[in-house]
Design a binder for these strands. Structure first.
Lengths: 247, 247
DNA sequence: ATCAGTCTGTGTGATAGCGCACAGAAATAA
DNA sequence: TTATTTCTGTGCGCTATCACACAGACTGAT
């Protein structure tokens, strides 16, 4: 029963586990607080389809969600990763309503959700809300742009490092439940390519994995191996959304 | 003398040559009209550098501008193309001020420019302005996302088709002044790769080229060859910015 | 405890794109 | 005109990645 589950877990959850909610001014947060529902998001759940209209926006706390594009011949590519630093549904306040990609839960967890219409109202009404969400949208823009660059120029191993770091940054623990097959779908490469790259990282002592579980052992080591794309994206998130514990 | 040049050409230019300006309500346009300067943009001019702060935003009329990212080891990749359908400087109203990429004139022409501060004021003041610019930003987001997908999955030839169509869509004529070397920089591939692809397109009768000039011969043919990415992006621009001749 | 299903490791070609090197052609400058 | 620079064409070997195929290992359900 999701409701019970949500209810039980509610005591362990606080709104501030999502950085955007945490950065809202107190009065603003108070206004929407009662409309926020804590929702469990199981692995693989599709939050919206290609072009699908969103009834709610989602502010993940422990869940991680991937924005994916699936090509006509079935190949896929991750456009961006969203976790507790952000939200799903920028198209709501950007005005388009939908986007030509899909959102899938990449790592199970929780998210607060809010009726799309309500978010839109608040976006129009409140200047701080608007500023915050727009800055987040810009960070998202940068992540997408850098994904394009990374896809063009960097090796699978570098991309895997980037992907792992971005994921672990958004995760409360050091263990990621994720098969190599799924990672290969995200990065849009072959599963064997991920196997090779992961083995290298494991024998270098940076990660450890076994059948669908990846454990972070040496973050610094990963950062030493990753391409600039990770740093560019991270720096931009830090710059644009600095007030993660604010007001 | 740019000033003279701008002045002379002014008589041939109307604000509505830029779709965003054209879509503004009359009263809004009137308010900013006197602050818009027509500026010539020569090929290769850098509008902003990596992380550079913008003093103005630009609304191209006949110019085409590329957003590029240059990697630490000197490779480059185009993030998006901006022409008379859009503007340079979304970071101004998104709130970040700068972005981690650069903007370079890819095809010489003109653009109206407006002081950044003024745009920001109008963005905050006027709801139609805000809606318009946000929808444009969303279209830009889609272009970036699709660039990532295309970089991952499609051949150089397909990408060249996409790039040519996006460029010709933004150009008043059927001739593009552009060397293969420059195109290869945009797409982030070798020059020889472009030579091969271009030769194929030429012998198929879709384009014709000679030393830095490319002529569009068969648009339908290009569209038949291009990957879905072009269509996805175009459909999204059409959907989000339909009122190109409005109000 | 067993078995079916899922994940990971590995091998063998094929191929797209890369790096480099250089030649001929076209435009531009002197 | 002639000389110089800038483009484009082409060849050759190299590498990363792909496509396919299958074996072994782990896990969870019965």
């Amino acid at each position: 029963m999701p409701t019970t589950h949500a209810h039980i877990s509610h005591s362990f959850h606080v709104l501030s586990q999502n950085d955007l909610l945490a950065a809202l001014p107190a009065d603003e947060l108070e206004r929407i607080q009662h409309h926020l529902e804590l929702i469990p998001l199981p692995l693989g759940e599709v939050i919206y389809e290609f072009g699908g209209k969103l009834s709610h926006v989602y502010f993940p706390t422990t869940a991680i969600i991937s924005l994916l594009y699936v090509t006509e011949d079935g190949a896929s590519a991750e456009i961006s990763i969203v976790g507790n630093e952000g939200m799903i549904g920028v198209a709501i306040f950007m005005g388009g309503g939908t986007m030509p990609n899909m959102a899938v839960v990449q790592s199970a967890g929780y998210a607060y959700r809010l009726k799309a219409q309500l978010l839109q109202q608040e976006f129009n009404r409140s200047l701080p809300m608007r500023h915050l969400l727009l800055r987040y949208a810009q960070a998202l823009l940068t992540q997408m742009a850098q994904t394009a660059v990374c896809n063009r120029h960097h090796s699978i191993e570098q991309q895997l490092c980037r992907w792992l770091l971005l994921s672990f940054d958004r995760l409360p623990s050091d263990e990621l439940v994720m098969t190599q097959e799924l990672i290969s779908n995200m990065l849009g490469v072959r599963r064997e390519g991920i196997t090779d790259a992961a083995r290298k990282l494991q024998s270098a002592g940076l990660i450890e994995y076994r059948r669908g579980h990846i454990t972070l052992l040496d973050r610094q080591g990963l950062e030493d191996n990753v391409c600039e794309c990770y740093r560019v994206v991270k720096r931009e998130y830090d710059r644009l959304l600095p007030d993660r514990i604010a007001t």
